[in-house]
Design a protein around this nucleic acid. Structure first.
Lengths: 295, 295, 295, 295
DNA sequence: CATGAATGAGGTTTCATTCAT
DNA sequence: TATGAATGAAACCTCATTCAT
């Protein structure tokens, strides 16, 4: 992303956290970002769009960092704990971005942002499911939603403390502390066999109103493809290879554009980039978004 | 409180929850409350003050309901659970008052509101301490802050679900469910004897900047006394009694006004209302606020 | 005049002088006058009308006091000086009513007030003419307007000082001091025989636009007649006399109402009240207003 | 000054004169000035500030014109008369700026404006003193305050006539007419040797509450220095000279900023600009403000 | 690409005036 | 006659957004 745009995003995160979305003026954002008010509008069409971009930026950053920390050699629980720890660190680094706070405020903004957040919540659910099952085994499946809610609640509340207060908490310990609490809870649940509060079915219905979540996914995949396009242009391949890959990308783009694009087609076409490290990242990201395997 | 004023408060809670504080105009509030814009300002001096009043109203209501549900005959845990359940019910009843959302937004507002919330947080801490110790015994004292954070996190996150979603949760079960999770956590903590994340000392420093919390307490006590005054005026006592009690109230008011009012003086004077059930509530509330015993 | 009404007038004079017409709210006026906002409107139809009434009240008061101080036995100059002194005293007594200030502000108000002030200016001119001629003789007639402007300027500027400042001026001396300055000026003018700046003709044209000043005069005379009516009702005459005088008043009223009422008719009819001291004041006032002799 | 800003000032002077400060809305000012409401606030932070700027603008203009008319070759009285004449002309030119009206209304406005006017009154006093003494000699010193009040009163009252009325006065004659009246008064005073009404000591006490008038003076001097800075930037000097003068300005600025800046230091440093006509005006103005000689 | 002056809709708040009681 | 709650027009001011330069 454009360096200046990133700068505006990072600066406005601070400002929004400090004074709230409505109490922060574009003028202030521009001033503190070292750009003119006019320039701001070169990067964002509106204040609302800035908000959307902030979320995109933030979620991507989080996701990236969380994934980077995974070490397949280690146990699921250790990995999960490390990922939680990263989240705490990340929060502290930006300190300012009070996820939960902004999320609530954001809900009153435009629909696009609303849907984006919902989408991310869906992804987060998958992430929890994957992790929780691999840590605690399949028998906790019925409790997955409750565990997620309980865990996120505990985690977010510590976030709040970290953000507001000047308390001196050792984050490395904090992450494992709350994961241990999750252990406690899982132990309790499996022992007592109480019925869950929320089932996956109940929750999915919450997202049913999410109009065409695929549309949003597609939009993002499209962006990934366009970035691949750029990478290809800058890459130092044989002309023949370039032409070939160009064809692949074009095909992918047209496939994604289709009303009823087939994931297995995309899955296959992406395999064409195997062995070209420049595209590894994209293959991974796209695969995850579409829920397909990397061939 | 004035019926119309209450109506405005209730209506604006809905609106703020729907569209946020800044996106809701006074005009809308007035329209939906069935009063004119001018009438709004008869009840509130500003939009900010409305916000403050909303919080006061909400916290008072909560507190009242929570206290009413206590049944000394039952176990501490059952009482605690019932109180949590009441909170869930209350949340659902107003549905609209999204605790966290408003709380966070409020931080960008004026200092008076900020301080009010801080004060209530302090009171909440005491409430947790009292309950947790009586449920789990003195040995969990070191973990009290952590338990509060963990529990509130879990609880709030279920709040969110309740508020946003159309999920069909049985609240009566929910309360005991999350209290059971607290059981799990306590069990885990007491078993592993892990060191706490946050101690009471660390947290108290967070409130040290709270300028003269006593001032706020005094203000509230003063209001209680004024209400007692009214009750006295309406009460059906012998004239002699009235005059006597009038003197007591006058004395109390002047004592509270003093720079260095002595709590034991107030404690003693309040005893004068013993046996007059009309004032029981006030004696209790004031005693709690000032941290004194009811004689 | 109604006691309460007078009270409102006096109070609002203070307030207007303090904070200006627009910065003083009806609420303040009502509060400080010890009446309700509603009651205010029982006495005045609008804030503007209050202003008008203030002027009427003030000018009448001034005029009355000024006239009361006249002692025919003394020289014209001494009488003039005494009248000026009374004005200073009056100003200081109300301190608040800053004639010039309010006059200017008033010009932006409604036409009725504007015309009223113009009318009073006309009367003031006559007053100056009468006094100046009797003090300095007919030869200063050409300078009368200039002398009035010069003198009022000097006088008003000392008013300002008296009002604003905490200066310790002996008013008794001040009046004669500025009249002495008038002496100086007259002496200078008569010596140098410089041509006047403004003539009476030039100035009269200024008032030509004053739409039907007679209308205003008539209105006031009508009020005087109505007051006479009241006096008659309360008077302790023989019934026959009462009936007779009633007829006179009715006749006068209908005459005044006429488009082209003849002053000599009024002059004659007023003579019917000769010897009845209760009506002396009215005969005088009306005669002056219409510029007729008292028979 | 910015052309557009000046335009707003001039336009609003008219409007305020017409309808008064409070009855003129920003919308009207904007409309008549040919700018948008928003643009108004680019130039002025508030309506009050506009008022302040109007006064500054007007007083500066007056002062400048008054000073420009001075011809050292002529007698003090002739110069004084010419200056008075300029004031009349200026009044007529703006016609609209009704000195007294605005002055009085202003007193209900904010403190900054109030102080500004007081400061200017102080300066005006000095101006009268200087002129009167040089015209009439030292022996009138005891009467200076009285003479000022008397003269301003006469002058202002003719202002009123000029502003309101459509009277056809020859201003050139008017100025010498009222100065002649001053002659009359002085002659009278010196002959009768009456004691003065007001002494300078009595009056100075009126300004004692004026908090740190030097602060205001300093602020103005600082503005002058900043303007000199600009002039220097645009001037066509040798680089060496520029650097030197830059140093002088910097030094002056830091000296003025000091709590106890010494006037003689400023006096000396200003001499550095001798012979550079671009700065003559500034040297003069600053010297007058600080009451120092031009070396 | 970059600027910042300009716009004007829309927000909060005040207050003269009315009117049911 | 007296009250004061209620009204709503109109004021001041802010700020997201545009656009000529």
């Amino acid at each position: 992303m454009n360096e200046k745009k990133k700068n505006i995003i990072v600066t406005s995160i601070d400002l929004f956290a400090d004074k709230g979305f409505y109490s922060t003026s574009i003028q202030e954002i521009a001033d503190k970002s070292g750009v003119s008010k006019g320039a701001f509008y070169l990067h964002f069409h509106s204040k609302d769009e800035l908000m959307l971009e902030i979320f995109k930026y933030y979620y991507n950053l989080m996701q990236e960092n969380i994934e980077n920390v995974i070490d397949e050699a280690l146990s699921p629980k250790v990995n999960f704990t490390k990922q939680v720890e990263v989240q705490f660190h990340e929060i502290l680094k930006h300190k300012s971005f009070i996820l939960t706070q902004l999320k609530e405020q954001a809900f009153t903004l435009n629909k696009e942002l609303y849907d984006f957040i919902r989408l991310k919540e869906l992804e987060t659910q998958k992430w929890y499911k994957k992790n929780l099952v691999s840590i605690y085994g399949g028998e906790i499946e019925p409790y997955i939603i409750d565990l997620q809610i309980l865990f996120e609640g505990m985690k977010n509340n510590y976030f709040q403390v970290l953000i507001h207060g000047e308390v001196d908490i050792q984050i490395s310990k904090l992450a494992s502390f709350i994961v241990d609490r999750l252990d406690d809870i899982v132990a309790g649940l499996l022992t007592t066999k109480k019925e869950p509060m929320l089932t996956q079915e109940m929750v999915f219905s919450l997202f049913s109103d999410l109009t065409a979540p695929e549309e949003l996914v597609k939009k993002e995949v499209m962006n990934n493809l366009l970035e691949m396009q750029k990478v290809l242009n800058d890459a130092d391949f044989y002309e023949k290879t370039i032409n070939e890959l160009q064809g692949v990308i074009d095909f992918l783009i047209s496939e994604v554009k289709k009303q009823d694009s087939k994931t297995f087609v995309i899955q296959g076409m992406l395999a064409n980039f195997k062995g070209m490290h420049q595209f590894d990242q994209y293959r991974k990201v796209i695969s995850e978004k579409l829920g397909i395997r990397i061939l």
